[in-house]
Nucleic acid binder design. Structure first.
Lengths: 191, 191
DNA sequence: CCAGGGGTATACCGATCGGTTTTCCCGTGG
DNA sequence: CCACGGGAAAACCGATCGGTATACCCCTGG
């Protein structure tokens, strides 16, 4: 029952894929991918149907980590309004990292212009879930139009992450939270 | 002095490039590019130093058209506030087109993760100019913090264009203008 | 008439693309 | 001990990448 000291080829591959696709874009080659993962191409192709599936699986695998990163550890201790602001505070924080390139799921949707691509479906799911969570919080917080507010917050979230990732904007002075505060106030969401 | 009935190779190339790069992304091949432009590769390489320069030049060439499309024809007839809203109304309009894939300049910044790429500089310039125009209008309109408001508007603009382009959001119900209105009001920009 | 230049078409270059195949190795279980 | 399976390494496939070189073509000006 010795736990393998080394991660399985599948795990090594997906971890390397997530990093490389994020850093260099989806057009990174299979060769480079397998080389950095320390996995033979043969192994890759018998674990997955092709590069597209590797991309989709690597995005899927990071979902829990990605979502946990934006969420408070103990949400019940915060008001809905604070929970929403927390997401944007975490975004601003992360956007300061030197390797930050914006939300990986939005980036994939932009790079793969094909909505039929398996990875596009994964990315859309992440975006829809965040929007749904915003909507639920907006409802709890008594926003006048929870659905409208949630969609507005998604505009700000994706705009902020794309611009920070492209290095045409910085979020470290509270730009995103100031914007969100204005929208929360306008929606009559006080708590 | 007969004006050539056919556009110059340079113009054909840049027009085809703008369309293909926008539709299929920057990874479209030189072969396909020249074929659809009706230009030989040889001509392309003696007009430009390489594919990267063609991309940068094609983006540059569309700037006047792109900016005119977002601007009122006679701005002096509109209040600063209306001029800002006009930009987002036009964005929402354009986003309904079947071939709409978001702001081409933001897309290029996301796809080419390299800020040193010649096309990245062109794209950054477009973004900075739009932000500067927002800032000037915010100032004219008496916004409390014109610079903050301009940056907020850019978040909404890029978020809306990216999400509409990726087809995860629709703007045809006034989502963007409603968001902008809330921000204008919060900034105390009444006119 | 004919020389030259701008243009197209096409073959070609080495490198890399996504993907397949072969070969070998090494660890484990019967 | 040996048979077997998972996996790594690497050769190999046709296609395409960005870029170059060759050959021809047609229009214009002297």
């Amino acid at each position: 029952m010795a736990t393998p000291e080394k991660a399985s080829p599948r795990d090594r591959l997906l971890d390397a894929a997530a990093g490389l696709f994020y850093r260099d874009g989806v057009s990174i080659g299979v060769e480079a991918l397998c080389r950095t993962a320390g996995v033979s191409k043969r192994s890759m192709y018998q674990l997955f149907d092709g590069k597209d599936e590797v991309l989709a699986a690597s995005l899927e695998r990071r979902i829990p980590w990605y979502e946990a990163q934006l969420r408070p550890a103990e949400p019940e201790a915060m008001s809905p309004r604070r929970q929403i602001l927390y997401v944007f505070e975490r975004l601003a924080e992360r956007s300061g990292d030197p390797g930050y390139r914006g939300c990986p799921y939005l980036a994939v949707l932009v790079e793969l212009k094909d909505p039929e691509h398996p990875a596009s479906a994964v990315a859309r799911g992440v975006k829809e879930r965040l929007a749904a969570d915003f909507r639920a919080l907006a409802e709890q917080g008594g926003a006048r139009d929870p659905d409208l507010l949630a969609r507005q917050l998604m505009l700000v979230f994706d705009g902020a992450s794309a611009r920070a990732g492209a290095r045409v904007e910085r979020l470290d002075d509270g730009l995103a939270t100031a914007t969100v505060t204005a929208l929360l106030d306008a929606a009559g969401m006080r708590t």
